[in-house]
């Protein structure tokens, strides 16, 4: 292939291509189009129930799929060996991967293996028109600043990106390109790490990253019981419950619900923040939401600066009224 090569290391969970793979493929397409480059999406799995061709319709020029039983559950040892082999052979300029627990495990080891750098949790990616280098922007120092980082000499230039940072492109009706199954030396599938099993967590099914509505509570909720109010409201809206870090630290909600720099990034259609002040670290996890509603009694709370609609007052008064009103609305239909 000619031109710059962009590789997306996709994620497969439970035999399905995870949505972040489409988000990154779309972004890679955008970047590649600025410099006449090509996009390859790589999928490692124990087998796929989805058609890898959907990635061709989302911006990839080709898809490489590697299937092997050892990869049916996440296996860092085999992944690093297989990907290092592929990337050494293909010598891409840019490699993007999801900043999920899997991506954040495989990628640093892979980067070290390839003797190159890696930028974690990028929220912005663009090609520098002057140098042709990938500019990788990530929150730094607790989200107080954004640092833009580049990898001037070493190749590939590698970055991980949190799910929902970029929007998945609309799928085209049809697209060219090919799905290929590269030849991998069998010894690379021999893993020193042995998978013993997987237990799905209680929260596993309700990943707040996948929901259209997230209703979050912070320290202003004061008691764990107050989260019932949020749960009720979230349920009426078909959404889930998020929390700020102090609310999680107080054990009012579990860590899977934490939104922000050290929690999850969510980009729902509607984000409702109640009793949350709006610290930059929290904003880092929700600022790309479609419509933001803030409920806070402090008119100067920073959360109002990123809100489309602000309700200034006591949340213990406002939320029950809001819930009641929405119940009426939903029930009336």
């Amino acid at each position: 292939m000619t031109g710059k090569q962009f590789f997306v290391l996709g994620e497969v969970r439970d035999r399905h291509i995870h949505s972040v793979t489409f988000e990154l493929t779309g972004k890679a397409r955008e970047l590649a189009d600025t410099c006449g480059g090509t996009v390859t999406a790589v999928l490692l799995s124990g087998g796929l129930d989805d058609d890898p061709e959907t990635l061709l319709r989302s911006g990839a020029d080709r898809v490489m799929t590697v299937e092997h039983p050892v990869l049916s559950m996440y296996n860092q040892d085999a992944e690093v060996k297989v990907l290092a082999h592929l990337l050494r052979r293909e010598t891409p300029d840019v490699v993007l991967a999801p900043a999920t627990t899997s991506g954040r495990t495989t990628l640093p080891a892979l980067a070290a293996e390839l003797e190159t750098g890696l930028t974690a949790d990028c929220t912005g990616l663009e090609m520098d028109p002057e140098t042709g280098l990938l500019l990788q922007t990530r929150p730094a120092i607790g989200g107080n600043v954004m640092a833009t980082i580049k990898t001037p000499v070493r190749r590939p230039q590698m970055a991980t990106v949190r799910p929902r940072t970029f929007r998945a492109p609309d799928r085209k009706a049809a697209a060219g390109g090919a799905v290929i199954r590269p030849e991998i030396p069998p010894e690379l599938f021999v893993s020193r790490v042995v998978n013993l099993g997987f237990e799905r967590g209680e929260d596993g099914g309700s990943n707040i990253q996948d929901l259209d509505v997230v209703v979050s509570g912070g320290k202003g909720l004061k008691r764990p019981e107050s989260f019932r109010i949020l749960e009720e409201l979230a349920a009426l809206l078909g959404g889930g419950v998020g929390a700020s870090r102090p609310a999680v630290e107080a054990k009012w909600m579990g860590y899977p619900h934490q939104v922000g720099l050290s929690g999850k990034v969510v980009a729902p259609k509607v984000y409702i923040a109640a009793g949350i002040s709006g610290a930059v670290q929290h904003l880092a996890g929700m600022q790309t939401a479609g419509f933001v509603v803030a409920v806070n009694r402090d008119p100067d709370a920073s959360i109002f600066r990123v809100a489309d609609l602000g309700l200034c007052g006591d949340l213990f008064d406002i939320l029950p009224r809001l819930t009641e009103r929405i119940r009426k609305e939903v029930g009336a239909e």
Partner: peptide, 15 residues
């Protein structure tokens, strides 16, 4: 090091 910080900026978010 393979990476270099080339710019520091302040996030400006407002609606």
């Amino acid at each position: 090091s393979a990476t270099r910080v080339v710019k520091i900026s302040y996030p400006t978010i407002s609606r």
